[in-house]
Simulated scan of single mutants.
Amino acid sequence: MERLPKKNLTAKIIALIMAIILWVYVMNEQNPPVETNMEVPLEVRNLSTSAMASGIPEYVRVKVRGPRTIVIGLTHNDIKSYVDLRGLSDGPNTLKVNTAIPANMELVEVSPEKINFQLDTITSRQIPIEAKVVGTPSEGGAIEKITYSLPNITVKGPSELLNRVTKAVATVDVSNQNKDFTVNVPLTIVDDKDKAVEGLTMAPGNASISVAITPMMSKKIVDVKPNVIGILAKGVVLNQINIKPEKVEISGESAAIAKTDFIYTEPINLTGIEKDIVLEVKLQLKDGIASSKNSVSVALSIGKQGQ
């Protein structure tokens, strides 16, 4: 077997080396390495469906270096940054950010390089709904009763946040309302100091609240007046009428009470009466008015005519 010719071998090797050097030189001149910064989404991998991670940023900044022709065509989809949460326990955790880049590229920097976050188990529980009333009804009105379409809602989220929750507040504006109404209002989850607790989900997020408006009640002391009808027996006269009590307390709608200065008894029939008598007589009360007493004692003093 003939040996490879050694003639001009050294010159050929030198020529090859020079060609490589020239190629590198040309490539560096025509397609030099450059750096670029890109903000890429931070992917969370292997997070359990029964867990929630808080404090993980949505994006990280990645600096890479590579040939200009490759860097120019680089997109966010070409770089993947992620953290792997497999096997972690509840509580504070720290993880390094992993980054995958295209071939022929060099990873220069990832910011942040590590992230600190909180991992919590997701649980749920029911909390009561409470109405927060703002404003005042129209003049003469008052809130009689508030009812809810449902007494509780289900709240879901990290156990650490759920432990702070006490109720769901529904803000109801009753300004200038003068009759019963129903309104659908959004709910706000709050703690024992009525501060909103963020980071939880609730179902449903709204509640139907019904408010019963009743006219404002007033009270007043008024005189009792006798309502006398009929004719006494022949030869006698009515000397005096004494009512006990002479005054009673009435209560009811403000407008009706304001128009009432006294209360009449039911008719007292004098027909056939010929001597002193004491009667228990009911009071005549208008609709919407109540009295501390429903009847009074009426004493009729009868005398002989001409005496």
Results as ranks from 00 to 15, higher is better:
Arg3Ser: 11
Arg3Lys: 15
Lys12Trp: 11
Ile13Thr: 10
Ile13His: 05
Ile14Gln: 04
Met18His: 01
Met18Phe: 13
Ile21Glu: 00
Ile21Val: 12
Val24Lys: 02
Met27Tyr: 05
Thr36Asp: 02
Glu39Asn: 12
Ser48Ile: 00
Ser54His: 03
Gly66Ala: 06
Pro67Asn: 11
Thr69Pro: 00
Val71Ser: 06
Asp84Val: 05
Leu88Met: 12
Gly91Gln: 08
Pro92Lys: 15
Val97Ala: 08
Ala100Cys: 04
Glu109Ser: 11
Ser111Pro: 03
Glu113Leu: 14
Glu113Gln: 14
Ile115Lys: 10
Gln118His: 09
Ile122Met: 10
Arg125Pro: 00
Glu130Arg: 15
Glu139Ala: 15
Lys145Leu: 12
Thr147Asp: 11
Ser149Leu: 06
Thr154Arg: 00
Lys156Glu: 06
Val174Ala: 06
Val183Pro: 00
Thr188Gln: 12
Val197His: 05
Glu198Gly: 07
Gly205Trp: 01
Gly205Tyr: 04
Ser210Gln: 12
Met216Lys: 15
Met217Arg: 14
Val224Ser: 04
Val224Pro: 02
Val236Phe: 11
Val236Ser: 08
Gln240Asp: 11
Ile243Gly: 06
Val248Asn: 05
Val248Phe: 02
Ser251Tyr: 13
Ser251Phe: 13
Phe262Thr: 01
Phe262Ala: 10
Ile273Val: 10
Val278Gly: 06
Lys293Ser: 10
Ser297Pro: 02
Ile302Gln: 07
